[in-house]
Design a protein around this nucleic acid. Structure first.
Lengths: 228, 228
DNA sequence: TGGATTCAGATTGTATCCAATATACAAGAG
DNA sequence: CTCTTGTATATTGGATACAATCTGAATCCA
């Protein structure tokens, strides 16, 4: 069985073809999610089904399914006969979400520290290093996303990891234009170091401080945008 | 696969729900949810859209919307072009969910203790007393639901309370036929007492012990039903 | 004036129909 | 006999069409 050495395999071709989504629902869900996270639609803004469908080249049926899913993720709010709007987070919501994240993520980091292998720590360190000498931008944010995704995967708690991801997405769209505190602060090397030393207190402290700082900043910005 | 000893059909559940909801989507969502929680559909069982729609007197469109929502709640699993099945929880899933509940509920009880008023404690005590001299059954379960709903409402953390509710629903359908441990143990008066004394350690300890016990029991039952 | 009301337009909710995909089973090749 | 391949059937995905509901502005009446 001879095989062309450096040509693409059928699996690779198939994967590329499959990366364009299987169903319209998936494509539409992903598109609307990205649009909301990118700030194309602002908090409180309406999301008319007809318009979204026209923009994406589908009917309202897959749009409705997508909106239901995004409602579950906490990004939009659906009201009967009144349609969907981008969910508005008040300062109290942001406060609560970040308190939840602190609780969950400090819990998770303990699992990570007790389960992660040396090779996996190397992988984290490599990503952290890239983060440190890359400039801010979409690529940086994607890499940061990957860092935490890998980090929490090592905890072997898939449901908890998924939950944390949802909470992060909920507040993600309020990050727009926020100066990335941890980037300036020298960043993710700190927590990788704590993990390598198997020091849960240090890791928890870093996470708590970091999340608290971001939470305060976001709450301040929301409060000054909606002055009572 | 024996069906659980309850006489409920999806039609009967639908009849009860029909008047309460504005749209068919809401009614169908509620009906399927209750049917799954009541064990009418067992874990792993398929949920054909056509059959559900026929049973509930609607087309497949609202059924599909309902299934999407229930997927978000964690009760069913949707796969493209393959339809919906009742989500199957392995022992590891139950373990993780209960660990999450312990983390979240012990966190919540501290908020409750620092915010709850004397009158609110009286209300809880009244419900707990009713729970103690009522017999097990649907009414008892509903009252128990109400106890925790009220309890966690006092924490002023609506998102966290909602999350706990979802996690409880996720595992709720595995309770079928489980002897109610806390009921035998004399029950909810203990935690009310701890709240009245503003003793978070005692409240946390009771919650942790109770949840751990139920978790072990459920995991044991799941494991012996699906022997490796 | 001001409040309720009515009536159009816009938007969402649902049913029906058709297309796309998966599943099960039969038939054929090796 | 086993594995593949073709085909029929069932089920899901999606588009169109129509019904129900909301919104807002003009109108009516006190």
């Amino acid at each position: 069985m001879t095989r062309p050495p450096d040509e693409a395999t059928i699996e690779q071709i198939a994967e590329k073809a499959r990366s364009r989504y299987q169903t319209a629902e998936e494509m539409v869900t992903s598109a609307i999610r990205e649009a909301v996270l990118a700030g194309v639609y602002q908090p409180g803004e309406r999301l008319p089904q007809e318009q979204l469908g026209a923009a994406l080249g589908v009917s309202r049926i897959p749009v409705r399914a997508a909106l239901r899913q995004l409602e579950a993720e906490g990004l939009v709010v659906l009201e009967p006969h009144r349609g969907a709007t981008v969910r508005v987070l008040e300062a109290a919501d942001i406060d609560e979400i970040y308190q939840l994240r602190i609780l969950l993520e400090t819990f998770m980091i303990r699992s990570v520290i007790s389960l992660v292998t040396a090779e996996e720590i190397d992988e984290l360190e490599s990503i952290a290093a890239d983060l440190d000498h890359l400039d801010e931008g979409p690529g940086w944010l994607a890499l940061r996303e990957r860092f935490y995704e890998r980090l929490y995967a090592f905890a072997k708690r898939p449901l908890t990891a998924e939950l944390i991801g949802k909470l992060r997405a909920d507040v993600g769209r309020y990050w727009l234009g926020l100066r990335l505190v941890d980037h300036e602060a020298g960043g993710h090397g700190v927590i990788v170091e704590a993990i390598r030393k198997r020091d849960p207190e240090a890791a928890e402290a870093w996470l708590t401080e970091h999340l608290t700082e971001v939470s305060s900043e976001l709450q301040r910005r929301v409060a000054e945008r909606n002055p009572q």
